[in-house]
């Protein structure tokens, strides 16, 4: 059979393109584990956090939870606020809950510090937009990150209405000093997004999140809201609590007692 160059290129091109298209279609229809995980999240366990703003504000200089979390997860300390990476941090009440602030509120009240982190939304926009499934929701409601799959497109950062996601603008390994690196938790590479994971790695072995454990005031209550008998459910039942931007329908799982 005679085949000229043009024919060969044409056929090779068609074969290559159909191979790629076929592969994509195959992975599309083989049953995506991520989507199933989202659908089946009506499970027995749903983790949530209740933050007692008053208790926390009582110790304005305290940073125990943040230090414990950032040390435990190898989060580098970056001075530049434009490039910083943070999993849990403090912000002014007026900035966290602008809709609950009035012009007659004392500056002292308005600038009271409130702990913020990833809200582990029930309906997370970040998971919806991720083009590679690098961020997904576990059956127990925790929104996870796969730092090895993330392509660094930062669509999740645009989608998150809480500013809870950070990006590694540079290699974090160059900032972390050797002795401080905890080998138990992976260090990230440059060019990927990261955020609080409710200490999924600790919950899975029956431990409390680092921030909860570190708080001497007991200002953070962590528990299973799917269990009506849990402490957190009892605490939520009779109190007026706030959630950040609940009107967006994201269903945040961090509650604030004010």
């Amino acid at each position: 059979m005679q085949i000229n160059r043009k024919e060969f290129l044409k056929k090779a091109g068609i074969a290559g393109a159909s191979l790629i298209a076929g592969g994509v279609l195959y992975s599309l229809f083989k049953g995506d584990d991520i989507i199933t995980a989202v659908v089946e999240s009506s499970a027995q366990t749903k983790w949530a956090m209740l933050i007692d703003v008053k208790k926390c504000a009582g110790k304005p200089d305290c940073s125990a939870c943040m230090t414990a979390c950032h040390k435990g997860h190898n989060v580098p300390a970056i001075d530049d606020i434009r490039r910083e990476i943070k999993w849990i941090w403090k912000a002014d009440f007026g900035n966290v809950f602008p809709e609950h602030t009035s012009e007659y509120m004392d500056v002292a009240v308005r600038s009271q510090k409130v702990i913020v982190a990833c809200n582990q939304c029930d309906n997370p926009p970040c998971v919806r937009v991720c083009p590679v499934g690098a961020t997904w929701k576990r059956a127990d409601g925790i929104v996870m990150m796969d730092h090895h799959r993330c392509i660094g497109c930062r669509y999740c950062m645009a989608a998150c209405p809480y500013g809870s996601r950070s990006f590694n603008w540079k290699d974090p390994r160059k900032i972390l000093s050797g002795n401080d690196i905890r080998v138990e938790y992976p260090v990230r590479t440059k060019g990927v997004v990261e955020k609080c994971n409710f200490c999924a790695e600790r919950i899975d072995v029956g431990e409390m999140p680092l921030c909860v454990e570190a708080c001497s005031e007991g200002a953070i209550l962590f528990g299973n809201v799917a269990d009506p008998e849990s402490d957190i459910r009892r605490a939520l039942a009779g109190k007026y609590v706030l959630r950040r931007k609940a009107e967006l329908g994201t269903n945040p799982e961090i509650y604030y007692l004010v």
């Binding site: 994509v24 989507i35 991720c130």
Partner: peptide, 11 residues
Amino acid sequence: NVLLYPSPHSL
């Protein structure tokens, strides 16, 4: 990864 993990829920 965009082709390897096609995610129709992502625009």
